[in-house]
Design a protein around this nucleic acid. Structure first.
Length: 595
RNA sequence: GGGGGUGUGGCGCAAUUGGUUAGCGUACCAGACUGUCGAUCUGGAGGUUGCGGGUUCGAUCCCCGUCACCCUCGCCA
């Protein structure tokens, strides 16, 4: 096929009644064909929409033969004249429905064999098949919409930050492995056999180095890779909006992130975000919602029953409290209407979360009913109900267990009960969670940094920290939470070398080890590091939520499966022995053939 | 790594207690039809029931193993 001077004059989906009479050239994919013997219809699709082609008695026999020989997903160029559809044959459901293109000439630019699935908006096929033929999946309008929205969102983010004086910096994809955090994806070095690059889990160190470099305000839409097992909302490589600022307080960073979020809401959803976003300390979030990422759409708050639960004569409460455990619960307003079956499922939710079960009762006009009911008759029972603020027709749900298990279970049943009661409000609820603990205790009882080890402590807690205390030390770290989903996190960093070394020491890291692992950062801090802090937002998850996608895979052009494989390219795949030899590598284990 | 679910023409599903030539819809191909737009009608082609093994006269069905995908726990500073 010889090159045309102009492939097309219009896009299919752009033609309107105002174009009637125009001689046009369009290109697109054959979406559908209908043949009535003498009159041929073809729906031609491009990114802008669908245009009906027609070849009836007004068309030449040649044009009718050409259009009659088309098949699904052929790519064609069509010369024709835009004309109005006859009365009664307009299609109101289609933007081009007022017009049709009378075909003069059809050129087949590319043929298509039979498709593995149909190109239609509603599709019910295995996701793996869509991923294997992603280029076909992307022809579908809903997928094109998501790709367009993502592009528009990235653009909005860049505009908002560049306007605020940020500099976009591309940090290396091949860097040094850091043993903390997630497992690294490794890249072998050919030049120095036996040595490795790591793909970045995040640009953390580099963005701090940008601050030492005086860039002042950095951002990047960064690709990050973590070699961990996947989840529905997690991909092995993902995008995060990464930011860092010098000479800032928490307030300024939070305000900046809020501005970015407001820009996204405005440009993508055409909605105004209410600012400032509510803030809540970690302590408060745990006390009120038993979670560091509370879903504030559910209007249920947790009550500490440690004082009153021991008084009502319920043996489980007493023994748990004597063992140093907790009793926490909440009232479900109107929850008296829940069936026994629904409550049983809440009890199961508690057990699935690791608790022994959930003790409950319903508050009725004649007293409390249910398993707790018979313990609530006396004054202590009245105090118990009063502490919960429960009223007639409420359901009371409680968990009694070790502190950590209590929190996990009470959070689980709070969310389950909220959903069951239809309490989840429509409105998006953003909240900042601040002052996260600097250390957290592992199952082995060891204290480890809860965030990364560069997070600064709250200054009032500094003395206790340097005195060796771990428990209760607050950090200047914060998370942004939307409807119970963590969107991102950040912190004010340590910029003082001595404090940094003290932190390393406090987590049991020898100076030599700290030097070996973070030599580049620690050395940078010798040369005048400004106070700085930043934030990172997981964009895939945020976009999936904002665009109403079924899965984060739907907002990623070429996603991977739960086993980190790409069905399209069949990566990961074996390589030639020669490639391995060049890298100085030998396999200890051969790849297992699939199927 | 653990647990759960799924696997039958391209796709969505069915197949009695283990029993005939594994059916139906859709898509595809061909023919018919002069205003359709989820066209319609007629016909056709299309199957290693994920793979391997076992039990049985006989396996889509029962058993064991394995692979892939999805969900979930661990994990993801």
């Amino acid at each position: 096929m010889s090159p045309a001077a102009t492939w097309r004059t219009h896009r299919c989906g752009d033609l309107r009644a105002s174009d009637i009479g125009e001689k046009v050239v369009v290109c697109g994919w054959v979406a559908n064909r209908r043949n009535h013997g003498g009159v041929y219809f073809v729906d031609l699709r491009d990114r802008a929409g669908i245009l009906q082609l027609i070849a009836d008695d007004d068309a030449t026999q040649e044009a009718r033969d050409q259009i009659g020989s088309l098949h699904p997903e052929y790519v064609v160029q069509v010369h024709g004249v835009v004309r109005p559809r006859i009365e009664g044959q307009k299609n109101k459901d289609r933007a081009t429905g007022e017009v049709e293109l009378l075909v003069e000439k059809v050129s087949v630019l590319s043929k298509s064999q039979r498709l593995p699935f149909e190109i239609q908006d509603e599709l019910d096929v295995p996701e793996q098949l869509r991923m294997k033929y992603r280029y076909l999946d992307l022809r579908r309008r809903p997928m094109q919409r998501l790709m367009e929205l993502r592009s528009k969102a990235n653009h909005a983010v860049r505009c908002a930050l560049v306007d605020q004086g940020f500099t976009e910096v591309e940090t290396p994809m091949m860097t040094r492995s850091t043993p903390e955090g997630a497992r690294d994806y490794l890249v072998p070095s050919r030049v120095r056999p036996g040595t490795w690059y790591a793909l970045p889990q995040s640009p953390q160190v580099f963005k701090q180095l940008c601050m030492v470099g005086g860039l002042d305000r950095y951002f990047q839409i960064a690709r990050c890779m973590r070699d961990e097992d996947l989840r529905a909302d997690r991909q092995p490589e993902f995008s995060q909006l990464d930011m860092e600022m010098s000479f800032v307080t928490e307030d300024e960073i939070l305000a900046m992130v809020e501005q970015v979020m407001a820009s996204l809401y405005r440009d993508l959803l055409d909605r105004e975000l209410e600012l400032p976003v509510e803030r809540m300390s970690y302590r408060e979030a745990i006390d009120r919602f038993a979670s560091d990422k509370p879903d504030l759409r559910i209007p249920i708050e947790i009550v500490d029953l440690g004082e009153v639960a021991g008084m009502i004569g319920f043996g489980v409460y007493r023994s748990v409290l004597e063992a140093g455990g907790w009793v926490r619960g909440f009232r479900v307003p109107g929850g008296g209407s829940l069936s026994r079956k629904q409550i049983t499922s809440l009890e199961q939710t508690a057990r699935d979360a690791g608790a022994g079960g959930a003790a409950w009762c319903k508050v009725t006009a004649d007293g409390a009913t249910g398993p707790l009911g018979r313990f609530l008759g006396e004054q202590a029972g009245a105090d118990f109900i009063a502490t919960l603020g429960a009223e007639t027709d409420d359901l009371i749900l409680t968990i009694a267990d070790q502190p950590r298990r209590t929190l996990v279970a009470v959070d689980a049943i709070r969310r389950a009960a909220g959903e069951m009661m239809g309490m989840v409000g429509e409105k998006d609820r953003l909240v900042w969670i601040t002052e996260f603990p600097l250390f957290e205790q592992g199952d082995d009882g060891e204290w480890a940094p809860a965030h990364h080890p560069f997070t600064a402590p709250v200054s009032e807690d500094l003395e206790a920290l340097l005195g060796g205390q771990k428990e209760g030390i607050r950090s200047r770290a914060y998370d942004l939470v939307l409807n119970g989903v963590e969107l991102g996190s950040g912190s004010i960093r340590i910029h003082d070398r001595e404090l940094q070394e003290a932190i390393f020491a406090s987590i049991g890291m020898e100076p030599e080890e700290a030097q070996r692992r973070f030599q580049h950062l620690l050395e940078a801090f010798r040369y005048g590091a400004p106070p700085h802090g930043g934030f990172a937002i997981g964009l895939d998850r945020l976009y999936a939520l904002m665009f109403g996608a079924d899965s984060i895979r739907d907002v990623i052009a070429f996603p991977k499966t739960a086993s980190a494989a790409c069905p399209l390219t069949e990566a990961p795949a074996p390589v030639d022995a020669a490639q391995l030899a060049e890298l100085g590598l030998a396999l200890l284990k051969q790849p297992t053939p699939t199927e």
